[in-house]
Design a protein around this nucleic acid. Structure first.
Length: 177
DNA sequence: AATCACCTCAACCGCCTTTGC
DNA sequence: GGCAAAGGCGGTTGAGGTGAT
C-alpha cells in the first residue's frame, strides 16, 4: 500500500497555469504569505476571494462551496512549485551568463545533481531552471553536440558526465573554479 | 507547404526528510 | 519513539516551438 496522495487528484486541475490562476496565487501570497501551509493555500485563496465578494454572494444567494469555484483548483504542491519557479518577484529566466555556466558545472563536479544546493549559489535562479538548463544545454555544450541517431535513441544510450572523456572536458571547462 | 526530428521548459510524479502531535 | 502530514527535492514527461528536409 502506497502513500496517501497529498490532495484529491480527481478534483484538482492539471496542466499549464492560466493568467487568472497566476494572478490569484501571486496576489494572495504577496498580501498574506503562504501561511506556512501550502496544502491549505488553494482553499484559503478561495475563502479570501469569497470574503471580498460577500456582498454579492449575500445578494444573489450563492452556495457555501462557491469558494471552490472562485479559488484555485490546484494541488498545494502545484501552487508551491508555481510560486517558487515562476511567480516569485526575484526570479530570473533564461540568459545564463558564462560565469553562471562555470559555477553550475564546477558545483556539478563537486556535488553532483543537487540542484537546490547549486541554485542557492545563483541568486534569482531556481533549481528547476538550472536542472533544465543543465540537461538541455550545458551538458551538450560541455560534452559536444552529437546529433542523436534513431538507433541511439532506441537503445537508450546516454552521456554520463562521470564517464571518461566527458569528465575531462567538463573539468577543463571549469578549470578556473 | 507538409512532414519529421529535435529542442526547450513548465509541470507532474514519487520518494525521502522534516515537523508536529 | 511512532505515526501521519507536509515540505522539499530530483527525475521524468509531454506539449509546443523550431529548424531541417
Amino acid at each position: 500500500m502506497g502513500r496517501a496522495p497529498c490532495c484529491d487528484k480527481a478534483n484538482v486541475k492539471k496542466g499549464p497555469w492560466s493568467p487568472e490562476e497566476d494572478a490569484k496565487l501571486k496576489n494572495y501570497i504577496e498580501k498574506y504569505g503562504t501561511g506556512g501551509n501550502w496544502i491549505a493555500l488553494p482553499q484559503k485563496i478561495g475563502t479570501h476571494i469569497l470574503s471580498l465578494m460577500q456582498f454579492f454572494i449575500t445578494l444573489i444567494g450563492l452556495p457555501n462551496d462557491f469558494r471552490l469555484y472562485v479559488g484555485i483548483k490546484r494541488c498545494g504542491k502545484s501552487c508551491r512549485l508555481r510560486w517558487l519557479n515562476y511567480l516569485r518577484p526575484d526570479i530570473k529566466h533564461g540568459g545564463f551568463s558564462e560565469e553562471e555556466d562555470n559555477i553550475i558545472c564546477s558545483l556539478y563536479i563537486s556535488i553532483g545533481s543537487r540542484w537546490s544546493v547549486i541554485a542557492a549559489q545563483l541568486p534569482g535562479r531556481t533549481d528547476n531552471d538550472i536542472k533544465n538548463y543543465w540537461n538541455t544545454r550545458l551538458k551538450k555544450k560541455l560534452f559536444g553536440r552529437r546529433k542523436q541517431s534513431q538507433s541511439s535513441r532506441l537503445t537508450g544510450s546516454t552521456e554520463d558526465p562521470r564517464d571518461g572523456n566527458g569528465m575531462d572536458t567538463l573539468s577543463n571547462s571549469c578549470w578556473k573554479y
